[in-house]
Design a protein around this nucleic acid. Structure first.
Lengths: 193, 193
DNA sequence: AAAAATACGGAACAATCGTTCCTGAATTAG
DNA sequence: CTAATTCAGGAACGATTGTTCCGTATTTTT
């Protein structure tokens, strides 16, 4: 039979996520992928098909990773409102820590590709719905526990949270490094709960 | 002396805005520009230098157009809160009306290019500051007139508004066509004022 | 009318794009 | 050992990229 794969496909995908996230789809060349993944051209194409397929696989993997950690966070949280603030605070920390910030891979891909690639559009839209649901369930739970005000409809609040999360990721991608800007936004957001 | 230009430079720039807005910088080829602007390759390069310079000019023009209309709106508004809701409602209408939606040229450019092109980064950042200032002054005025609650700091509220506007434009670019999603977000936003 | 200047269309450029293919070495299972 | 399979490396593909250049037409000033 054949020899076994010498590289781990998931590790390679993580590398692909990194560079696509950083440079975008159109900004990443095949040579960039070869250099960054550490695979030969042939292995790369044999394993993943072509650039678009590799991108789709990367984005799906990213989506799953993020969703899993989001679900885990809410499951282990005893206070929902605190958990929500943690999510945003973490985003702010990430936005400030590096000289450059990549923002959110999903948001970046939505802006760059959703209009022109139906497959990407579906991934983005599905992600939006499922993340919105996670937020919505969390908010409902928080409201039942008396941790979140019931003045706002849970679905509405979930969509609102999602929207502000997107906005902050764009701000980060745009290179905003003033902590006060983020803090002001967060202050306004959480005055609603 | 020489003959006069047969095309209007500003009209050509408006055409450039259209296609860059639609396809992004990396997604727009020189051939796309020739086709869409209706100029020859030579005229295009003679007039605007190169692709990057044309993009910068387009983005700056877009920024000025948007800022002017924003200022005009607030100047003519007797009620600031109403004016703010109008801005968001207009964004929602635009998001829903066409089969495809381009979102915001500035947001798209920020996501695609700010990390990799310092000149674009500066335009994006300058725009953010000046738009934030416009919002801030408007909010202050609205608070003085008793049209906007004074519970929130004007600067904080301005940044919050900007953030949600970005988020909505990303949502539109991602192809969201469910009016209820936008309405839910708007409901949450304006419950703060 | 002559001269200067610019617009135009299109050919042509080198470079890079994504992708395919070939070769030989490596590794595994039977 | 043999056969099968996958690896890495790199040459090579045609297509497209952004850009330059040239010849000609056109318009304006002297």
């Amino acid at each position: 039979m054949a020899r076994t794969k010498e590289f781990n496909e998931d590790q390679a995908l993580d590398k692909a996520i990194e560079i696509f996230w950083h440079k975008g789809y159109n900004g990443t060349s095949a040579q960039d992928l070869v250099n960054h993944l550490g695979l030969s051209r042939s292995s790369l194409y044999d394993t993943f098909g072509d650039k678009q397929k590799l991108f789709v696989k990367s984005l799906k993997r990213y989506q799953k990773q993020n969703l899993d950690s989001l679900n885990e966070l809410f499951e282990n949280a005893e206070n929902i409102k605190t958990a929500l603030t943690e999510i945003f605070k973490q985003a702010v920390i990430e936005s400030l820590q590096d000289r450059i910030t990549k923002g959110c891979f999903m948001v970046n891909s939505a802006v760059e590709l959703a209009m022109h690639d139906p497959e990407i559009a579906k991934i983005v839209h599905d992600n939006q719905k499922v993340v919105e649901d996670v937020f919505c369930n969390a908010v409902r739970k928080g409201q039942k526990l008396g941790q979140i005000s019931e003045k706002q409809d849970a679905r509405s609040l979930a969509r609102f949270i999602f929207n502000n999360y997107s906005g902050i990721r764009v701000l980060a991608r745009a290179g905003e490094k003033d902590k006060q800007v983020y803090d002001d936004i967060l202050k306004a957001i959480f005055s609603l709960f």
